[in-house]
Amino acid sequence: MSVLVYTEVAKGRVKKSSLECVNYAANIAKQMGTSVTAVVNNAEAAHIDELGKAGANKVLTVKNDKLNSDSLLITALVEQAAKAEGSKVVIFAFDITGKAAAPRLSAKLKAGLVAGAIDIPVINGNTFEVKKNVFSGKANATYVIHSDIKIISLLPNSFPVQLSGGSATVSDLTADLPSSRITVKETRLNSSGGMTPLAEAELVVSAGRGLKGPENWKIVEDLASSLGATTACSRPVADMHWRPHHEHVGQTGIAIRPNLYIAIGISGAIQHLAGVNGSKTIVVINNDKEAPFFKSADYGIVGDAFSILPKLTEAIKKFKAHQN
């Protein structure tokens, strides 16, 4: 009956979005009077520790290098784990994996799915009420899941992760997986200079066409590195190849919800806002006081980015130096 969570280890640690899911599952399990089981691939003792601290009571481990490149395999794995655990609730992160595996599992189990949940479900007998964003963040909808088995994928950065002193038992999960039908030909990693990937970043510094050209990005990067932030950009900037397209945020790019979003020389078009208006705090820097973005900002500075950014970077460095 336990609440089942699919979790992932990347770059040597449990993904933040996975820890959020375990926390989320622990909240649901508490409401239902049951426990949390996490499934994880290629985990080491430290990862299992971390999953325990995030609220997992049991961790099922597997080792399979093909798993991550084919959602067919993840679906089969989670389906078998859910069966073994008698789970009626399955949680994924609404990330690259969860977007492919959660709906596929929903098809397999004829289980209702809420994709991109932003809140803890309200449980009414055998139905769950779950909130998610719709209309690209302009609104939210409360969905009711009617099916016996319920699947929820959780929007990353919707909850702060709380770690406790808990620990989890471990066992190997022996699953009978189909052979993969997708062959990986090549994997290329971006030269992100060790920045946190955008989808997980808590601090984001983003710039638009107001920067005039790619040669001017140094001041944006300086500001980002003073904060330890990840850089992003508006769509025209990616379209003109001033910046790599994986930095493009908005309706057609990545939707993000960091704690802090600093928008520099970006007008604030509705399609841009659609991808960033879930940010906790928004700072807008624009030389046009009528720029629409100010209507969606918490803090605003009207002025020339080229003179403001170095000053802001200095102020942050000073603040950081004081903190240490």
């Binding site: 929903s106 004829k110 289980a111 209702g112 799915l113 809420v114 009420e129 964003n133 719709v134 963040g137 302009k138 609104a139 939210n140 909808a141 409360t142 969905y143 009711v144 899941i145 009617h146 099916s147 208006n277 928004i282 807008v284 100010f294 209507k295 969606s296 900002a297 918490d298 803090y299 605003g300 500075i301 009207v302 002025g303």
Partner: peptide, 20 residues
Amino acid sequence: LTTVKSYALNPGRTTCKMLT
């Protein structure tokens, strides 16, 4: 398997503090 019970607009930001 699922239905929408209700919708709500996400609250916009009400005030933007301006700095120089």
